[in-house]
Amino acid sequence: MKKPVIFDIGWNACINCGACIAVCPQPAGFVSDFDTIAVNTPCEIACMKCEDICPVSTISHLVVAAQENPHK
């Protein structure tokens, strides 16, 4: 079972291409205000496809410990 992660986006390199949202299997709404995958909500799926597709590799993640996950 994968552990939830929180994504971080290096905004300096992000080109707002939207590929990360396009490949994301999350339901509607898992987006940031800047049209990227959400950066303030834990991702329970943690498939990392958004990181793989990013043309400039500007998405990274931190594994969220269970007690830090506000949705648990």
Binding site: I15, C17, G18, A19, I21, A22, V23, P25, P27, A28, G29, V31, D35, K49, D52, I53, C54, P55, V56
Partner: peptide
Amino acid sequence: RSQVGKWAGIKTHIKLKELASCL
């Protein structure tokens, strides 16, 4: 990234190997 499709429960998900990462 259609959110409308997702609202309606339409299977919109695309496989990683079918989405070109373009620059």
